[in-house]
Design a protein around this nucleic acid. Structure first.
Length: 419
DNA sequence: TCTGGGGTCCTAGGACCC
DNA sequence: TCTGGGGTCCTAGGACCC
């Protein structure tokens, strides 16, 4: 049995944790630079506030309904996520954290101990709420895709109260019949359109197709989804939690940038983040992709990217920073109003399988990197940085509606007044 | 006045080579 | 009048997810 546990409008709910006055109000959270709406709490959803719309386009709508607007407070969300994931992990023997607010659970040894999945799901919800004040939804199913579908039902369909279980033919068909095909995991806008032309409208319609037919018309990936919807697992636990094959860090700037020093500083910071992410999944990369670009919404879109081949596969921040220095001149053009930049690791592989190169002594300084990671884990992500990250901070993002750092700054702690 | 997210994976099409 | 291969690598853009 699999489960998918995720938070309801996680970022918006996180804002309500330390500010209970918000709990009865409509709340939205904006993406970086206050660009788009990325989380809409249930109260705001009932007011038809759309997700992923540019903020400036829906400003009037938000004002009309007195919606509370928050900038993204990633430090807060990351901390609350850690706490939530920790609690959830107590309820299974296998947890895979799929995103900041979602985790898949797999029950092996636990299964014989659980006789009622509904009750068990409610226990998870109650415990997470009691210890974090975050609302979560829980879906159980015999495959990851069905657990996702059950989770969708738990949160979106009436009568489920936050927990849904697919454990027999009747529960499977009931839930899939009530689910739009576009809400199936892996079916996006484009596929939805094509499927609906074929009169495949619900998740159940898709499940009733023959996998080989779907494979011919679409792809092997969608054929697997059909199998999964029928309770035939095609993704095993190992597939669900595979390492990333590409790792990126990119950001748009608060204001357009023309200064080369600021751009280079931003790129070095992204290189550091990529290196840290790689080390966290015990991987290295052979090639780094660096890019800088103007805004795609402007008339003259200018994007330039270059690939830097590393002499040996690496996840060393200092080696990555040197790569940025080595090719920055080729990337930068005078006169472009830069909007975004980023660094990506391509051809990612497991660090343990690396061949050592006799002739290349420039290998990762593993001790130094472990020390860097340990210090930053203990004292906050940017405690130890490279000198080249410190030259300017003019590329940092705009967060007009930022809430206090309740969990990472002493002087932001909520105060309780006694009278 | 101006403003439009970030991450990962996949694929089609072109360049290049033999 | 019709006809000209196959493999690899690279890249940009798109699909999908949250």
């Amino acid at each position: 049995m699999y489960a998918l546990v995720d938070a309801v409008a996680f970022y918006a709910s996180a804002e309500k944790v330390f500010n209970p006055a918000l709990r009865t109000k409509p709340v939205v959270v904006l993406t970086n630079n206050d660009g788009c709406i990325c989380a809409v709490c249930p109260i705001a959803r009932r007011l038809n506030i759309p997700k992923f719309q540019p903020y400036f386009k829906v400003k009037h709508l938000l004002a009309k309904h007195n919606v509370v607007i928050c900038s993204s407070n990633y430090e807060l969300y990351a901390d609350l996520s850690d706490k939530m994931m920790n609690i959830i992990s107590r309820f299974c023997d296998n947890q895979y954290v799929y995103s900041i607010d979602e985790s898949f659970l797999h029950f092996n040894g636990f299964t014989p101990l659980i006789n009622d999945w509904h009750q068990y799901g409610q226990l998870i919800r109650r415990t997470v709420w009691r210890e974090t004040k975050l609302p979560v939804g829980v879906g159980f199913g015999p495959t990851p895709t069905l657990a996702k579908a059950a989770n969708h039902a738990a949160k979106k369909l009436s009568g489920f109260n936050g927990v849904a279980v697919i454990d027999n033919e009747q529960s499977r068909t009931t839930i899939l019949a009530a689910m739009d095909v576009g809400d199936v995991w892996g079916v996006g806008r484009r596929l939805t359109k094509k499927l609906k032309l074929l009169n495949i409208n619900s998740a159940l319609d898709l499940a009733q197709q023959s996998p080989s037919h779907i494979k011919r018309l679409f792809s092997v990936v969608l054929a697997r989804t059909v199998d999964e919807l029928n309770g035939r697992p095609t993704l095993n636990w190992h597939d669900v939690q595979h390492n990333k094959r590409e790792v990126f860090s990119t950001r748009s700037f608060a204001n357009r940038l023309t200064c080369p020093i600021a751009l280079k500083t931003a790129l070095v910071s992204h290189a550091m983040i990529v290196a840290r992410k790689l080390r966290a999944q015990h991987c290295v990369t052979k090639r780094l992709l660096l890019f800088i670009a103007s805004s795609p919404h402007e008339q003259h879109y200018a994007k330039k990217s270059l690939i830097y081949e590393l002499p040996t596969p690496s996840a060393d921040s200092t080696i990555f920073a040197n790569a940025v220095t080595a090719i920055f001149e080729q990337l930068y053009q005078v006169g472009v109003r830069y909007y975004k930049c980023g660094v990506g690791a391509l051809e990612v592989s497991a660090a343990q399988f690396q061949q050592h190169d006799l002739f290349n002594q420039k290998t990762d300084n593993i001790k130094l990197m472990s020390c860097l990671d340990a210090v930053n884990k203990r004292y906050g992500a940017d405690t130890l940085t490279l000198a080249s990250q410190q030259q300017t901070n003019q590329w940092h993002m705009k967060r007009t509606f930022l809430s206090p750092h309740y969990t990472t700054r002493w002087h932001h702690l909520p105060k309780i007044a006694c009278c």
